[in-house]
Amino acid sequence: MTKLSMVSESIIRHIETGDLREGDRLPSEGELAAKHGVSVGTVQKALMQLVHSGLITREQGRGTFVSGARVAPADVRYLRFRDADGNDLPSYVHPRSVKRLKRKGPWSDFLGGEGYVRIDRVISVAGRFDLYTEFWMRDEDFSELGGLDRAALERNLRELVAQRLSLPTQHVDQWIRFDPLPDVAAKELKIASGQPGFIMELRGYTLRNRPLYFQTVYSGPFSDRLVVIRESGQ
């Protein structure tokens, strides 16, 4: 594990365990550097990663604080990672928007119907890099969910659909490609528009092979060497 990762993951663990709570002030950069035996520059880079992921905020003249936004580990079973040393990397979901659309595309070809709901989210992987996801459902299926608050949007959406609608995901087709990212994905991932990136499409089926959801996951380039954790039956 790099010194940068050691600092950021230590702070994440303290947030997860409740040692650091919403609004708590973090130690100074110098104190963190001394605690972890690293340079102040390394601490500053680690803090900027966590600011980008939404876990902390920095206020000029006041210090660094645990974010006021709710911090909850993401349950994203098809995209879980370990680093090269075997350490699990926590992921955090940041909901962006929920939109009703009639626009056609690969999702409509798969789902059928006329109206759709798209749930946009950003998943921060241990503050190291972000994934941007678009989760599509039929409008009529989404309406049956009975509304989604922020806490629900931070959960595994497949499991939420299974629990509320009794529509389990029986199997998933996964397609990957390397292509220029759409503008909305590039903006969320803070990379240049049109830059190539990793794109994964997931097509979920429920009972009797009925199409249930269509999801696209986007990622820009990152240098970490990671292990993808595969859950049994996922």
Rank of each mutant, 00 (worst) to 15 (best):
R210H: 11
A126E: 07
Y78E: 15
T64G: 02
P73N: 11
G127P: 06
D88Q: 10
S219H: 01
H94L: 13
K99E: 12
E159F: 10
I119V: 13
T2M: 03
R208C: 00
T216V: 09
L181I: 00
S39F: 07
Y205P: 06
V184K: 07
S166Y: 06
I229V: 14
R203P: 00
S193V: 07
V76Q: 12
E154T: 11
D173E: 15
Y116H: 13
S91D: 10
G220A: 08
R225H: 03
D24S: 02
L101P: 02
E140T: 06
R164D: 01
R13H: 06
S10E: 12
H14Y: 01
V122F: 05
T133I: 06
F81K: 09
I12N: 02
K45F: 02
V125F: 10
V117F: 12
D19Y: 14
S143A: 09
W107P: 02
D179M: 04
T133S: 13
Q44I: 10
R155D: 15
R210F: 01
V184P: 12
L50M: 14
T17S: 12
R70V: 11
G86H: 03
R138N: 11
D109M: 01
S91Q: 14
L101F: 14
L20P: 05
T216R: 00
V43N: 08
T216D: 05
I229A: 03
R155I: 07
R225W: 02
V184I: 15
L111N: 04
W136H: 07
G86D: 05
E188V: 01
N156F: 06
R62H: 12
D141G: 00
D120E: 14
K99N: 00
Y218I: 10
V98R: 00
Q174K: 10
G147C: 09
G86L: 09
A151H: 11
D183L: 04
L157I: 09
R100M: 03
M48T: 15
A186Q: 03
V66C: 03
L131K: 13
R118Y: 02
R82F: 08
R158K: 06
Q49G: 14
Y132T: 08
R118V: 15
A186T: 10
G233F: 14
L131Q: 15
L212D: 03
F110N: 08
F110H: 07
T206N: 09
L20I: 03
L160V: 13
R103M: 05
G30Q: 09
Y92W: 14
Y116C: 02
S28C: 12
I56G: 02
S166A: 15
T57G: 04
G23A: 05
L207C: 02
L189C: 09
S143V: 04
P73G: 07
S10L: 09
P196F: 10
G86I: 05
Q163H: 13
Y132S: 04
E114D: 15
F214P: 01
L101M: 08
I12S: 04
T64L: 03
L202N: 06
I15K: 11
V43I: 06
Y132Q: 12
S67T: 13
S8P: 05
G147I: 07
V66A: 01
V66I: 02
G112F: 04
P168V: 10
S28Q: 10
R203E: 07
F222A: 04
G233E: 13
D173R: 08
K104C: 07
L165C: 08
R155W: 04
A152L: 05
R203H: 10
G115N: 01
I191V: 15
V66H: 02
P90K: 03
F178I: 15
G23K: 11
T57Q: 12
R155H: 10
N87K: 10
L50R: 09
